[in-house]
Design a protein around this nucleic acid. Structure first.
Length: 187
DNA sequence: AGGCTCATGACTC
DNA sequence: GAGTCATGAGCCT
C-alpha cells in the first residue's frame, strides 16, 4: 500500500503553502496558487489546528503527533526561508525520485543561503558534467522547493534560468537572500 | 527501441 | 543577441 500522506497548510504573508507528509518526513511543499491568494479561508485547515484532516483518499484521519511536530518545524523554517534566512531544525525530507534526481537534489541542498550554483556546476558536482539539461529537468521535479533550494540554481553567466512554480517566486526568493542575477533586459 | 521535450551551455556569426 | 547544435534523462508510445 502507498504511504499515507497528510496534507497541512501554512499561512504566510506570501500566501498559503501546502505541505504533505509521509511517515518518513516532509514529502512535498506547494507554493500558493496566485488565484487563491486573496480568497478567504472558509474551508481551509488552519496551520495550527489539531483537527483531523482529509487525506488524499478523502478519509478523515487524525494527524499523528509526530507529523504535527514536523509541521511546526516546517512552518517556522518556511517563515525563515521566506525572509531569506536559513531554516533550522527541519524535519527529515522524504524525497521521492530517481537516483539521478536525488543526487541533483542532494547537491542543491549543499548550496547555502545567499549563494548560487549553475546547472553546469551541479552537473559537474554529481559527476555528470555533460548532464546539464538533465539537471534542469531534475530541478523542475523537486518536490520540496525552498528547502531543497532549486531557486539557487541559475543558468550560466548568472542568468535567471527557470522555475517550475513561476519565475516571480524565484526572483523574490533570490532577492530576499541578497542574490544578484542578470536582469532579463540586460546583456 | 525510438522519438520527443527540456529550468543548459558552448559555439558561431 | 539570435541561431544552432550536442547532450542526459525522463516520459511517452
Amino acid at each position: 500500500m502507498p504511504n499515507q500522506l497528510f496534507r497541512l497548510s501554512i499561512r504566510t504573508p506570501d500566501g498559503q503553502f501546502i505541505a504533505r507528509y509521509s511517515s518518513k518526513g516532509l514529502a512535498e511543499l506547494k507554493f500558493p496558487s496566485f488565484d487563491r491568494r486573496r480568497r478567504g479561508n472558509e474551508s481551509q485547515i488552519s496551520s495550527t489546528s489539531s483537527k483531523p484532516v482529509r487525506d488524499s483518499s478523502r478519509r478523515l484521519l487524525p494527524v499523528p503527533i509526530r507529523i504535527l511536530r514536523w509541521h511546526r518545524a516546517v512552518e517556522a523554517g518556511l517563515k525563515n526561508s521566506l525572509a531569506g534566512r536559513k531554516p533550522k531544525n527541519l524535519p527529515p525530507l522524504d524525497l521521492a525520485g530517481t537516483e539521478f534526481q536525488k543526487r541533483v537534489w542532494n547537491a542543491m541542498r549543499k548550496i547555502s543561503a545567499g549563494r548560487t550554483k549553475s546547472y553546469g556546476e551541479i552537473a559537474h558536482a554529481i559527476g555528470k558534467p555533460k548532464a546539464v539539461r538533465a539537471v534542469g529537468g531534475a530541478c523542475g521535479a523537486n518536490p520540496v522547493p525552498i528547502f531543497v533550494p532549486c531557486h539557487r540554481v541559475l543558468a550560466a553567466n548568472n542568468k535567471i534560468g527557470g522555475f517550475s512554480s513561476g519565475l516571480d517566486w524565484k526572483r523574490m526568493l533570490l532577492a530576499r537572500e541578497g542574490i544578484k542575477f542578470q536582469p532579463p533586459s540586460a546583456g
